[in-house]
């Protein structure tokens, strides 16, 4: 009888502990299950809440140490770094409202549709709206929030193609990576281990999505899928511009040429033979010598600032 009683008590305690642990580590919850603020003090604060915070900060790449459950200097430093990235005051103190920011949006897709698009897919990314939209046969299918590049490291505007896809171990690129054929750098659409950055201008130029979102659309997007990125940030132009030139300003000129009625092909940032032909056609139409060079007159004729 004592054995049965012991087993019953032990089982009950185990279930209770498991429930407690599950509750504390429920990844989809955005509410903090604890009731105290964590900060550096002497003696240091200890407990399951500290351990969970350390674990989460480690997942996110801020905390390199062991999970000790002790709120030490390394933990406070990790909190300060996360706060800096969140554009918060780096106090090193974890208030109760700080917790949801570490989990926000990570485990639910933001897409209004989750079934695969039936038609031909292309993607449009609107940098100023912080939005990625999947199109099916030209019709809007589903949209997702993103984090594009910061002003100092802007995302590349243009008409790109997905040229490479891969799974990731939830590192800085999250769980999925899709490379774009941008000729002046390694840019792509990917997940993130900094989900709080979604909805903000925060990346180094890539397009960040919530992991669940990028996981959802990953199978929809074959290699070669067209990705159009538009925005309205200021672009520096270098004139004269000739064949062989590569850059964001080339993309803007390509778009302007097309708008003027002289198609240079895809706006891929490369001043190639097609673009030269388009410039020459514009110049001939306007009665000018067809040099194929974008000089100040061509620049003016295609209405660029």
């Amino acid at each position: 009888m004592k054995k049965w009683l012991f087993c019953l008590v032990f089982l009950g305690a185990a279930v209770a502990c498991a429930a407690l642990v599950l509750e504390h580590f429920q990844p989809g919850e955005h509410q903090c299950r604890y009731n105290r603020k964590l900060y550096l003090t002497h003696p240091p604060l200890e407990g399951a809440d500290v351990a969970e915070l350390q674990e989460r900060l480690k997942e996110l790449g801020y905390y390199p140490g062991e999970i000790t459950g002790i709120y030490d200097e390394a933990t406070a430093r990790a909190v300060r770094e996360a706060q800096t990235d969140l554009e918060l005051e780096p106090t090193g103190e974890a208030e109760l409202w700080f917790w949801p920011l570490l989990y926000h949006g990570e485990d639910i897709t933001q897409g209004e549709k989750t079934d695969p698009p039936p038609g031909e897919v292309h993607i449009e990314i609107y940098l100023d709206q912080l939005k990625l939209t999947v199109f099916s046969d030209g019709e809007e299918w589903a949209s997702f929030p993103i984090s594009p590049g910061r002003p100092a490291t802007p995302s590349p505007m243009g008409e790109w193609r997905i040229v490479e896809k891969s799974y990731r171990p939830n590192d800085a690129f999250g769980t999925r990576w899709m490379r774009l054929n941008v000729p002046w750098g390694g840019y792509g659409v990917h997940g993130t281990n900094a989900p709080w950055s979604i909805g903000r201008v925060a990346s180094l130029g890539c397009i960040r999505m919530y992991n669940k979102d990028v996981e959802l659309i990953y199978p929809w997007i074959p290699i070669g899928t067209r990705v159009i990125i538009t925005g309205n940030y200021h672009v520096q132009y270098k004139l004269p511009m000739r064949e062989g030139r590569v850059g964001q300003d080339v993309v803007m000129v390509q778009w302007a040429l097309r708008k003027a009625g002289f198609d240079p092909g895809e706006a891929d940032g490369i001043f190639d033979a097609d673009m030269t032909a388009a410039v020459k056609n514009l110049q001939r139409t306007m009665g000018l010598e067809p040099t194929g060079t974008v000089d100040e007159t061509v620049f003016w004729l295609i209405n660029l600032p």
Partner: peptide, 18 residues
């Protein structure tokens, strides 16, 4: 061509499309 908007400039030899 563009100087026509920048001062007292008259243009010759422009194309009809202009």
């Amino acid at each position: 061509y563009r100087e026509i908007t920048q001062g007292k400039i008259i243009l010759g030899g422009y194309a009809p499309a202009f």
